Simulated scan of single mutants.
Amino acid sequence: MDKIVPFIPYGKQNITDEDIQAVVDVLKSDLLTQGPKIQEFERAFADYVGAKYAVAVNNATAGLHLSSKALGVKINDRVIVTPITFAASANCIRYCGGNVIFCDIDKHSYLLDTGLLREKLNSSPPNTYQGIVAVDFAGYPINLEELKSIADDYGLWILEDACHALGGYFIDSKGETQHCGNGKFADIAVFSFHPVKHITTGEGGMITTNNDLLYEKICLYRTHGITRTPTIMCEKGAWYNEMIDLGYNYRLTDFQAALGISQLKRAKVSLLHRRRIAQKYDQAFKSIKGIIIPHVADGYYHAYHLYVILVEDRRGMYDFLRKNNIFTQVHYIPLHWMPYYRNINNADGLLPTSEAYYQYCLSLPMFPTLTNDEQDLVIQKILEFLR
């Protein structure tokens, strides 16, 4: 009788009894939403990444949208975005009526190529662009110190999409540790709590910033543009509130926040597990012809939301592993190839490094509860395919 091969996804959540109890406690409480757990989660998260403020939202897409609105993106603004990312990184600009201009990636890090970025800015008239959406792709932090220097030269804001990079950091020119989302160089950062991310609330996200004005705007827009702040209302009274701008209902619930608090308590341990898994993949594949493992430069602490390899016969390996119940994934189809963005003056050959990357990229199973036996099987089957 054939041995049953376990189903191994590319990513999955880890829910403990402590997580469940934290949620149950809130479900038994008086407040399921807009209660004390939201602020508790926000404070704990801000402390974790080293930011002044954190604002919980119902998902990271909402967080990116609120951030774009708070930054003042308006109709016909031009914002530079990397094409190797999830669609929300660019869509948030379109929600506000702005135009997305893609800039190619670095062939080693797969992050926004700062050299090409500067060339694009140098070759354009002043004030052509208003901002940059920078993505910490796969958990590899982009050097925001360098990016901030470029942005300041051209009067641009920076929105850091840190959805992949909770716990990641780089060492700056002064030898100081700069955690993703700490607000030192980027104006705003956004994190995701989707089940495959470092911590989960089911769906959910967090916005971080050190800017007082941006924080106030984000809080306002998160709840319909309605305020209860006495100093800016026309009338006073415990019942009274005023809608002073057009906002949205992008709130997180208290029971989700309770899950987030519980998950955050073991975020560092989970990150160490991810790095251990990455190191094992590195050792297995670093000398294997036909595989390129992730590049990590000195001074960077990769958070490994994804472990992406490049392999020549990507489709063949993907299908072979799938037949063996190992479900890898491709991250991502270049955004400028998506039909929506193709119709906005984007064509093949526009971003050659991103297009070449897409032909070969494959994300291997990467999650803290991946067992040694499961990872051994993944490695074994990849080597078997290459042979």
Rank of each mutant, 00 (worst) to 15 (best):
A162Y: 00
I199S: 14
I158L: 09
A189R: 04
Y215E: 08
Q178L: 04
A165S: 15
N182P: 11
M206E: 09
G183T: 12
T177A: 05
S149W: 00
I218W: 10
L166G: 07
L220T: 07
S173E: 13
K148G: 02
A186G: 13
I150N: 03
I150Q: 01
K197W: 04
I158P: 03
V196T: 15
K217W: 07
F193V: 00
H164Y: 15
A162H: 02
T209G: 13
F185H: 05
C180V: 13
H198G: 13
G183Q: 11
K184Q: 12
H179S: 10
M206Q: 11
H164G: 00
V190N: 01
D187K: 07
G175C: 03
A189N: 05
I207R: 04
K197L: 12
K184F: 05
K217T: 11
E160W: 00
L166R: 06
A186Y: 08
G205F: 00
D187V: 04
K174H: 14
H194S: 13
G183M: 09
D172E: 08
E216A: 12
N210P: 13
V190E: 01
L166E: 09
F191V: 04
Y169A: 08
T177C: 09
I171K: 10
G183H: 14
D152E: 07
I188R: 09
L213N: 11
D153C: 09
S192I: 03
I158N: 04
I171A: 02
L156A: 09
K174P: 01
S149T: 12
L166P: 07
T209P: 13
H194V: 00
W157P: 01
D161Q: 09
N210Y: 14
F191T: 03
F185Y: 15
H179E: 01
G204T: 09
A165G: 13
T209D: 13
G205D: 04
G183I: 09
G205H: 05
I150E: 04
C163A: 13
I158H: 06
K197H: 12
D161P: 03
L220C: 06
D187M: 04
E160R: 13
C180T: 14
I171M: 11
K184P: 05
